[in-house]
Amino acid sequence: MARFLIEVIGTLSDAGSLFMVAAGLTLIFGAMRVINLAHGSLYMYGAFLMTTFVGASSGLRFWWSIALAAVIVAALGAVMELGIVRFLVGKEPLTQLVATFALFLILADTALHLWGNGARTVVAPSSVSGRFTIAGAVLPVYDLVIIGVAVAVGIGLWALLRHTSVGWRIRAAVDDPEVLESGGVNLRRLNLGVFAVGALLAGIAGAVVTPQVSVAPGMDESIIVTTLLVVVIGGLGSVTGTALAALVIGIADTVGTLVAPTWASTFMYLAVILVLVVRPWGLLGTPER
């Protein structure tokens, strides 16, 4: 039972951070039909900025550092959208991939120059860096923080999309951008907003996970592949699907680890194949017309 609880909490915390990154990517794809390969870079920048802001201190500063890092990443996202991504809307998928991959490389090299090639760490405030015991299982408190932030992000996104006029427009843009534009909505401004929000989510995720990882070059690359998997099996453009998919990937990874450790990564891809065989458009996606 203790072991089971450890697995469950570990999986949920993993899925939580994955969801935050993937939700941003899927939101951007939904509204703009652009796959942003540099999305993982935004996540890495969130983490690096966090190491800069927190510095050696811990405590209250930790929390506002997360917010500050995320806001700066959102601003960076806005600049990316204005400078490059908006010109990719409606272009060939290959053009989009090449252009955003170029962005990925530029951001990676820039990060090397800004933060160097070594690993960095962040220490969580003592209030959340301890452990708690439940049913004999000793669990890190910080896992609950990640899960909590992910849930809050999920609820926030749901409220934004379902209960605000901006959300209504975003959903309309996902369904049919032309109709929306003929209705007098400034699609460019909407896209800019969506991209910035997507970047914000990646920034939050990157900043929040810092106490559990080493912040180093290469974070961008490792996250983007898993994120694309999550987005694809969740159904491109579906935020709820993304949440489900993050869980599926997390569970597949954990089960794989327990059943056949040397095949663990295969389990993840098996889950992807299974989902796509049954629903080629993803768990909650809609078939392209």
Binding site: L97, F101, V225, L228, V232, Y269, V272, I273, L276, P280
Partner: peptide, 22 residues
Amino acid sequence: HTPRRLAAGLALLLLAPVAAAC
């Protein structure tokens, strides 16, 4: 390097460029 056993229709289509590019 980044896992490249990226099977299955759409996933492959989307991810192959990443793996190749990486």
